[in-house]
C-alpha cells in the first residue's frame, strides 16, 4: 500500500476552522470572543512552545504580543489603514524585525538566563510604554473596526467576521508553522535541547538555529498580538507585562508540546477556565485558578495533549489491527 499519508494535524486544523466558521453565527457572542482571544493566545503560545522545544523558556513572549498589538493600533491610528490583512502583515513583520534584532544578542543565552533576559527586555518596554504619549500611556490605545479586503462589516456582522478572520489566520499560521516544525529545521530545534555540541558537530550553527526559532516565535507572537488587538479593539502596556508571558507559558504546560494543536487546545481551555473561575468565584477566582494549575502540574505533568495522543494511538492501533485482519482475510 503506497497510499499517501494524510497529515492529520493539517486535516484537524482545517476541520476546526471550517466547523468554527460554519457555526460562527449560531454561537453566542461572548463565546465567539473567547474563541477569538484563544486564537491570539494560541499563536503566541505556539511561539513559546517552539522555544521550549529548543529548551528555552521565554518569559518575554509578551513583548511580541505587545509589538503586534501596538503595530495594529498605530497603523490604524497614524496611517488610517483599517484592512485587517494589511495590519496583520505589518504586525507580523514588525514583530519579526524586533525578534531578529533581539535574537542576535539573546541567542547566546540558555536556561534561566534566557528567561530572565527576555523578561528584562519585555519589562523595559512595558515601562517605556506607560510613559509614551504616542502609545496612550498606561490606558493604551483603542482600535477601530476593521475592513477585510474591501468588505466593511458593522454592528453584529463586525464581530462575526472578526471571529472568522481570527480563526483562519490562526489556521493558516498554524499550518505554516506545522510544516516548518515537521521539516529538518523542526527536528534541529529539538536537537538543540538534547545536545548542542552534537548539533554543532553535525555542521549546524546552534546560534543560528536558536536565532531563527526566536524570530519565528516573535512572528507568531506578533500575529497573536495583532489578533488580540483587533478582537479586543484595545491594546495596553499590560501586553508586555511579565504575567502576560506567564499565561502563554501556562498554556503550553497545560496542553503539552506534542503538536501545533496543543497550544490552541490549551489556550481555549485557559480562557474557559478563567471565565468560569471568575463567574463562579468572583472573589476567589485567583486561588481557584491557581489550584487547577497546581492540580494539572501534579497529576498531569506531561500536559493534556498526552491524553489525546494516547487515545489517538489507541484508536489508530485498533483501526490498523482491524484493517490488517481484513486484509489478511482477503489474502487467505
Amino acid at each position: 500500500m503506497t497510499r499517501r499519508q494524510i497529515d492529520w494535524t493539517i486535516a484537524t486544523l482545517l476541520g476546526v476552522a471550517i466547523a468554527a466558521s460554519l457555526s460562527a453565527s449560531g454561537v453566542p457572542g461572548w463565546i465567539r470572543y473567547l474563541g477569538q482571544l484563544s486564537t491570539a493566545t494560541a499563536l503566541t503560545s505556539a511561539g513559546v512552545m517552539i522555544l521550549l522545544r529548543a529548551g528555552l523558556l521565554s518569559f518575554g513572549q509578551g513583548l511580541f504580543y505587545f509589538v503586534g498589538g501596538y503595530a495594529v493600533a498605530l497603523t490604524t491610528k497614524l496611517a488610517a489603514i483599517t484592512d485587517a490583512f494589511v495590519v496583520l502583515l505589518v504586525a507580523t513583520i514588525s514583530a519579526g524585525l524586533v525578534a531578529v534584532i533581539l535574537g542576535s544578542f539573546l541567542a547566546r543565552y540558555r536556561g534561566i538566563f534566557f528567561s530572565m533576559l527576555t523578561l528584562a527586555v519585555s519589562m523595559v518596554v512595558f515601562g517605556i510604554a506607560t510613559k509614551v504619549r504616542l502609545f496612550g500611556g498606561s490606558d493604551g490605545l483603542n482600535i477601530g473596526l476593521m475592513s477585510y479586503a474591501g468588505y466593511r462589516p458593522r454592528g453584529a456582522d463586525a464581530q462575526w467576521s472578526g471571529f472568522v478572520f481570527c480563526i483562519w489566520v490562526w489556521a493558516a499560521f498554524s499550518i505554516a508553522t506545522h510544516i516548518l516544525l515537521r521539516s529538518r529545521f523542526g527536528w534541529l530545534i529539538r536537537a538543540v535541547a538534547d545536545n548542542e555540541v552534537r548539533v554543532e558537530y553535525l555542521g549546524y550553527s546552534v546560534k543560528q538555529i536558536v536565532w531563527v526559532a526566536y524570530t519565528l516565535a516573535g512572528m507568531l507572537g506578533g500575529a497573536g498580538g495583532a489578533l488580540a488587538g483587533l478582537s479586543a479593539r484595545h491594546v495596553d502596556p499590560q501586553f508586555a507585562y511579565w504575567t502576560t508571558a506567564g499565561d502563554f507559558i501556562f498554556v503550553v504546560l497545560l496542553s503539552g508540546q506534542a503538536s501545533i494543536l496543543s497550544p490552541a487546545f490549551g489556550a481555549f481551555l485557559l480562557e474557559v477556565l478563567r471565565s468560569y473561575a471568575s463567574a463562579l468565584f468572583p472573589d476567589q477566582w485567583q486561588s481557584v485558578f491557581g489550584a487547577m494549575m497546581l492540580a494539572i502540574v501534579l497529576f498531569l505533568p506531561v500536559g493534556l495533549d498526552r491524553l489525546v495522543t494516547l487515545l489517538w494511538s489507541m484508536t489508530r492501533k485498533a483501526v490498523s489491527r482491524r484493517s490488517r485482519s481484513l486484509a489478511g482475510g482477503v489474502v487467505s
Partner: peptide, 8 residues
Amino acid sequence: IATYALFL
C-alpha cells in the same frame, strides 16, 4: 508554574 500557582 507550580510555584506560580502556589503564589496565586
